[in-house]
Design a binder for these strands. Sequence first.
DNA 1: ATATTTAGTTTTGACTCAGAACTATAAAGT
DNA 2: ACTTTATAGTTCTGAGTCAAAACTAAATAT
Lengths: 352, 352
Amino acid sequence: MARRLQLSPGSLSRLTAPLIAGGLLREVGEHNDGRVGRPTRLLDMDVDAKHFVGMKLRGNEIIAARTNLRGEIQQHRSVQIHDRSPKTVIGQIADLAKQVSEGLDIDGLGIGIGGLIRDREYVVDARFLGWSDLPLARLVGEATGIPTLVDNDLVAFTEYEHWFGEGREDDRFAVVTLGVGTGFGLVANGAIVTGDDYGIGLVGHWPLDPTGPLCFAGHRGCATSVLNSDAIARHVAEALNRPVDFEGALDLAADGNPAARRVIDDAGRGLGRLLAAICNLTLPQRIIIAGEGVRLAYIASEAIHAGIAADRDPRATTPPIVLGTKDNVDWCRGAAVLAIQAYVHGKLPVVG
Amino acid sequence: MARRLQLSPGSLSRLTAPLIAGGLLREVGEHNDGRVGRPTRLLDMDVDAKHFVGMKLRGNEIIAARTNLRGEIQQHRSVQIHDRSPKTVIGQIADLAKQVSEGLDIDGLGIGIGGLIRDREYVVDARFLGWSDLPLARLVGEATGIPTLVDNDLVAFTEYEHWFGEGREDDRFAVVTLGVGTGFGLVANGAIVTGDDYGIGLVGHWPLDPTGPLCFAGHRGCATSVLNSDAIARHVAEALNRPVDFEGALDLAADGNPAARRVIDDAGRGLGRLLAAICNLTLPQRIIIAGEGVRLAYIASEAIHAGIAADRDPRATTPPIVLGTKDNVDWCRGAAVLAIQAYVHGKLPVVG
DNA sequence: ATATTTAGTTTTGACTCAGAACTATAAAGT
DNA sequence: ACTTTATAGTTCTGAGTCAAAACTAAATAT
C-alpha cells in the first residue's frame, strides 16, 4: 500500500526512484483487494540493506548487538569489564563491534551509557565507570573505523521506542525503566525532551511513599528505597529473615507470600504515584514500562493502578500502559537507533 | 536590525515586500554603527496595525482587554456576571467587546475559560459556569461579527508567555499559576503540551506535604489544601482565631507573625516540591509563576527553594524562576494571543 | 474485444530559493 | 571634490520542488 501521505503521486515517483535505485526501497509484489483497476505496487524498505551496531555500557559489562535499519537485532554478544580504563574499554568495544558485525559492512555505531553525555559525543560524567570529559564517540570511531555516536542510555532507549517501538504512533509518551535504578524518558510534541541535567537520574529519589523506608541519601520512601530491585530484594529478605534476590521476591509475591506481597504492592503503589505525576504534568498518550525489573509491573498491576488513582482526578483518563521485556539487549536497540537516526538525517560523523 | 535568519538577502526582500505593502512591517529609520558602507534599513512590525480582544471568563466576572499585535493591552474593562445562562453571558461578551474596541476594527477575539475546551471552539465542560457542550466560539462570533476562538485559560496564558512573555526565548518552560486554584502549563520542544484531559485541573490535588491538612476531597497536604489562597487564609485565620483574608495572611507573614509565617512557609515548601517535580520530569529552561496569588511566591521565596532542594538531586541545576504580576488583566493577554496566533497562521475562523 | 477503473510515470507550469549581477549609500583615500 | 572601497539591498537567473494534467499500464466489467 503505497500511501501517499500528503504527497502527489508524481512527487512520490520522483522521490522513491533514487531510493529504489540505491537499494533502500524495494518492490515487494502487488496488491489488489478485489477492486477493478491496476493493482498497487507495494514498496517496502529493504531493512537489511544497512547494518548498525548498538552497545550498552554498564559498570561491569558491555552488551552489543547488530541491527538492521529498523533496529531489529540480528546478532548480539556481551563481554565483562574488568579494567574500567577508557583505553581498555574502547579496545573491548572495538573487538565486540568486529564480532557482532560478522564481516558485514557497518554504517554506524551507537553507544548508550548511564550518565551525562554532551552532543552525542562527549562523556561528561559516567560515575559508574569513573569517566568524565571523555570524547568517547571520536575515540571509538578512530578505534573501529565506524561513525560513532554516544548518548545517555535512557535517551537512546526512548528514541528507540519513538522511532520503532511502542511509541512510534504517538506524539507524546513517557518511558519508565525499572531495575537497579529508576529511569524516565519523555517525548512531547514529537521529539524527546532533554536538558543539561538529563542523565543525573532525576527521578531516582522521587518521593513515592511518605511512610516508606529511608534510602542511603536519607529520602523517605523515594524511588531508590521503594522501587529499586535491590531495595525490594533487601526488604523481602529482611521480612523473611533469609536471603532473597529480586526475582525470588517477585516469585514469592506471585505465590501469595504476604510479606513479599506487601513489599511488592508498596512498590507498585509507589510506581503508580510516579505514573500519576507523569500523567498530570505531561499528559502522555502512552506510558511504556521496561527495564530489567519490569516484571514488578506485571505482578503489581493492581497496586500500580491504585497508586495512579490516588493521585489523579477521577475524571482524568489514564493512557494505556504497555509493559516491555526485561531483556538487557533491548538497550542495544536504543543505542543502535542513535546511529540509525544519524544515518537517516545524514548526520553521521566522519571517521579518520 | 534586519537579521536574516537563515535566509538569503534576496529572499528577505521578496518576503518583506508584501508585508510592508500590507502595512504589517514598516521601515523605522536607519542604523550604522560607525562602519563603512550603506546603513541597514531597520524593519519593525507595526504592532498597532491590527487589534485584538482577549477575555477571561470567571464564575462571576468577565474581564476584557483590547491589545495590539504583540498582546500589549490598550484598553480594558470588566463586568459582573449575574445570570450564567449562555445567552446572557454571550450578550455581555458582545457588549464588552464593543466597549473595549472603541470603534476600532478588531481582527480577532480570544476567550479563556477554566475548563475543558475542544478545538478552540467548544466548551466541553466549564463547571464554574455550569456550561457543557456549548459551541461558544461560533455563538460569540455570530453575536459580535468578530472571528472568535476559545481555549482553556491556562493554555491561553501559556501561549502568551510563549509568544510574547518570559518564555519567548525558550524552547521549554513551565507556567504555574497561584490563586483560588493551582494551574500548570508546559511548553516543550517549542510547542505547548496539551491533551484531552487538559482543563480538569490536573495539579489541583498534587501531593505536596504528607503531614499537611486534608482538602475537601480527602487528600492530605494536596495543592488545594496547602497552596490555594482560600486555604491559606483559612489556616491563618484558624491559627489566630480571627478572620483573615489571603492578602492579610501574606501581610502578617511578611511582618513576622509566627503562625502566618508557618502557614506561608508550608505553602512555599509545598510549591517548591511541585516545582522540583516539574523540573525533574520536564527539564524546563525557565519556570514562570503568576496568578492572583503570586505574592505568595515573593514572600515564601526561601521556603520554595528549600522545597525544591528537598526533591532534587544536588547536582541538578535549577532553572530561573520568574515571578509575574497578580493582575487579572494578564489573563486577557493570553486570550488575545489565541486570536493573534490564528491571525498569524491564517487560521481565523470565518464569521457569519 | 472494448470500455472502465485504478495505479503509476512523465510533462508542464507555478513557485521558491540561493547566488550572481547590479544599484544605493555610506566612509576612507587621494 | 573626486575616486575607491565597504556594506546594504534589489533584481535577475538558474536549479530544484511541487501539484496538476496528460499519458501509459494493468487490472476488471460488459
